[in-house]
Every structure is written in structure tokens, then in C-alpha cells.
């Protein structure tokens, strides 16, 4: 949401074109993410899951109402839409090039991230920190920097996602991030928490399922399409408790 607003203002007020605006928004997001981590989450590293969850919810509430107060809660129309991109016609099917761009960007980003996490030293350090913070300290890993970096990367990716999102759904409101946020979490869990290919798989699956349901379900039951995502999640977790790609680790007794 914050990235969406940033891009919006860069384009409309500063007349910066779309792609540079997105890059600038990424930088802003990274800064915001690192700031939030420093202020709100760092102290809670040793705290319980629940405390961190509530803090995160409070932060998102703060951002949403903050933006609503500052920039008015009225929806704004985003000037760049999918229509601005050329449309291909393959026989009877018309395909917007924006759709292709979205998919391509998503896949590229995921591949880059996976390579980063498995090949690059900092990426591997990130995995280590998530496994065992104390051990990471003992190995000389600068844990604070790595965690800040993680938030920076996450926020930058969120900015990219925002850019992709608002072109397809060109309406910006302060609360636009809530539902996508929940669905993102569901997608991550669906694919297996902690696995990047899992998140990618989960995201694509969820998107497909939701769109298909909405397309093919009779309008009398249209409400149900909203619930489909959640039903799928529960069914998948029942069959594969650690997510689609997750390996369920039995705790060694």
C-alpha cells in the first residue's frame, strides 16, 4: 500500500515515468521496512510469536490509518492501467501484454531471490539466522544487518508486487493491502513456510484457483469464490501438514 501510494505520487506529482517511479518506490519501501524493523520488531526478537504478531498487526493498522488520515481514505485511480499496454490477439483469445509482463516479472524475481538465498553469502546467512540465531552470532554473522537486509528485500519485493497489482487493479486506497496481505500469508503457508519455490507455487496456485472459481461458479454462489482460497488451504494442510513443498519435520524426542 505504501509503495502504491509512492508510485502514484511519483507519477502524478513529480511526473516521473512508471518504471523509474517503481524503482524509487522500491528504495522508499526498503527504507521504511528497515525503519519499522529497527523501531518495532528488533526488541521483540526473543519474545513470543504472539507478541510479534500483535505488533505487526499494530504496525499495519498504524500505516493504514496514518495514510488514511494524511492522504484521505478516498480511492484514487491509478493512471497507468493494463489498457496502456498493447494487446495480442491469438485467434479468438485476446491477451494483454501486461499479463505476460506480470508473470515474467514475478518468475524472474522469484528465481533471483532463490539464487540469492542459495548461492550468495548474505542470502545463506539469512537462512542460518532463521535456523539458529545464537549459532549465527557465534559464527560471526552480523545478525542485525542480516535481519535488516531481509526486511529491506521483503519490502522491495512488496513494492514490485504493488506496481504489478495497481496496474491490473488501478484503484488505490489506504486499506488496499489488507486482503492481499492475508492471501500472501496463505500462499506462503500453502507452499510451505520458509520455502521460496513454495511461496511461488502457492501464490500461482491461489491466483489460479481464485480466478477460475470466480469465472466458472454460477453467480448465485459468487460469494463462495471468496472463501475458496481458504477451503483450499485447509484441504492442502490436511493432506500435507507442512505445505505443498514442505517437509514435515518430526521433532526429535
Amino acid at each position: 500500500m505504501t509503495a502504491a501510494y509512492s508510485i502514484y505520487f511519483f507519477i502524478t506529482l513529480l511526473k516521473i515515468p512508471f518504471i523509474p517511479a517503481t524503482l524509487l518506490a522500491m528504495l522508499l519501501s526498503m527504507a521504511l521496512g528497515m525503519l519499522i524493523e529497527r523501531l518495532a520488531y528488533r526488541r521483540l526478537r526473543a519474545a513470543s510469536r504472539l507478541s510479534a504478531l500483535i505488533t505487526a498487526i499494530a504496525v499495519s493498522l498504524f500505516l493504514q490509518t496514518g495514510y488514511a488520515t494524511l492522504f484521505s481514505p478516498d480511492p484514487r485511480a491509478f493512471p497507468v492501467t493494463a489498457a496502456s499496454f498493447p494487446v495480442f490477439h491469438l485467434g479468438e483469445v485476446s491477451l494483454s501484454s501486461w499479463t505476460l509482463i506480470t508473470i515474467a516479472v514475478a518468475i524472474a524475481v522469484m528465481i533471483l531471490l532463490q539464487l540469492f538465498v542459495t548461492r550468495h553469502k548474505a542470502g545463506k546467512a539469512m537462512l542460518v539466522v532463521s535456523e539458529d540465531v545464537k549459532g549465527a552470532y557465534l559464527m560471526g554473522i552480523k545478525v542485525n544487518s542480516i535481519i535488516s537486509m531481509t526486511f529491506a528485500i521483503g519490502s522491495a519485493l512488496a513494492a514490485i508486487a504493488a506496481a504489478l497489482f495497481i496496474v491490473s487493479y488501478p484503484q488505490i486506497t489506504p486499506y488496499m493491502g489488507a486482503m492481499p496481505g492475508i492471501k500472501a500469508f496463505i500462499a506462503a503457508v500453502l507452499g510451505g513456510i520458509g520455502l521460496i519455490p513454495g511461496a511461488m507455487l502457492g501464490g500461482f496456485l491461489l491466483g489460479l484457483i481464485e480466478t477460475m472459481t470466480r469465472a466458472y461458479i454460477p453467480s448465485s454462489l459468487s460469494q463462495l469464490s471468496e472463501g475458496v482460497v481458504f477451503i483450499v488451504l485447509i484441504l492442502v494442510l490436511l493432506l500435507k501438514p507442512a505445505g505443498l513443498l514442505g517437509k514435515s519435520e518430526r521433532e526429535k524426542v
Binding site: F185, I186, V189, F230
Partner: peptide, 20 residues
């Protein structure tokens, strides 16, 4: 029988399903 995060998200899903 799910654990931790996974149980939390299924309860969330349950709430939303009830709403729908």
C-alpha cells in the same frame, strides 16, 4: 494436529469461511 503457524492460519481460514 497441525502445529504453530499452520494451525494459526487454518483458524484464520476457518473464520473467513464462516463469514463467507
Amino acid at each position: 494436529r497441525l502445529r504453530g503457524d499452520y494451525l494459526a492460519i487454518t483458524t484464520l481460514a476457518f473464520g473467513e469461511i464462516v463469514k463467507v
